[in-house]
Design a binder for these strands. Sequence first.
DNA 1: TATTCGTGGGT
DNA 2: TACCCAAGAAT
Length: 358
Amino acid sequence: MRDDRRKPANSGELLAWYDVHARAMPWRVPPADKVAGVRPDPYRVWLSEVMLQQTTVAAVRDYFHRFTTRWPTVQDLAAAEDGDVMGEWAGLGYYARARNLLKCARVVVSDHGGVFPTTLAGLLKLPGIGPYTGAAIASIAYDLPEVVVDGNVERVMARLHDVHDPLPGSKVQLTELATALTPQARPGDYAQAVMDLGATICTPRNPACGICPWRDPCVARVEGTAAELPKKTPKKPKPTRLGIAYIARRSDGAYLLERRPDKGLLGGMLGWPGGAWSEEGAAEAPPLTADWQRLGAEARHTFTHFHLILEVRVANVAMGTNPEVGQFIEPASFRPSDLPTVMRKAFDLAVGAFDNGS
DNA sequence: TATTCGTGGGT
DNA sequence: TACCCAAGAAT
């Protein structure tokens, strides 16, 4: 802080802004309804917060609707089949979230009578609930004054106080600043207000400082440094890995798929056999003997920490063929939408080849 | 503390 | 095109 005479930011200014500008969301109770006594459903708050981890609101909306339609309560979700939940999560990414989601639902039902813990400490013991999500549920669902620190809060605090130390090292400092601002009154609305501010006004690029409810106390705005904060330590370059996807179609239209192990990349998801991906592109043996055809194109996909070039090989096989890995899934129970995106890309290429009568 | 773990959209 | 980024958690 370079100007101690500046009047510090205060939560009331932000709450007043939120009362007018709160974004409408399927899992959210608008401030006017909360005044009337409406409380958020902890199940829906929890589900939305897990889905929103490192994921945009736009991407979450449809998933949230499908999940809550299919599994309206935590009891419903706890009773679901693993494969159904993983399939419904397919395409949303970070699949450990879905595995932990199911674990968490089952613990809540078996150990807590189907009621989410009502303290931060209790929430933090559950799978998939970390410091952010625990504080978010505690504040939004139960109006407890816990400190919510996500990427939005980090950015807003860094700018309000002109913090130039790079993340993630500055996280402790930014958390302290966030703690000082978190109010005892309406902490749930406040938490959502800071995140709305970060998402709509105090954006990563081209922040709309002119219409910000905290424009006066914001030190970075005065210093002209808002757009360059928060600083971040540079990230490592992504290597490129090579792999093969073997897509076998049986004469009845069944496809050969395998369930990937729970640990590691795409853990718990369906995928095409093809072995590990490496920078050397070691040739993996096919899952069964057949007349494998190479396609003219490969699937390209970028993960968090590497690029992938996936060669797709296809084969038509007869009924009664026994694969060495995976199992055939019949057309009636195969939904391409159950596949993670990279596997669906490979499938889209293969379908074109099968349609061409290979 | 550093790495692993997805995906789609914006610039 | 190539990067950046998004309501992080687990290890």
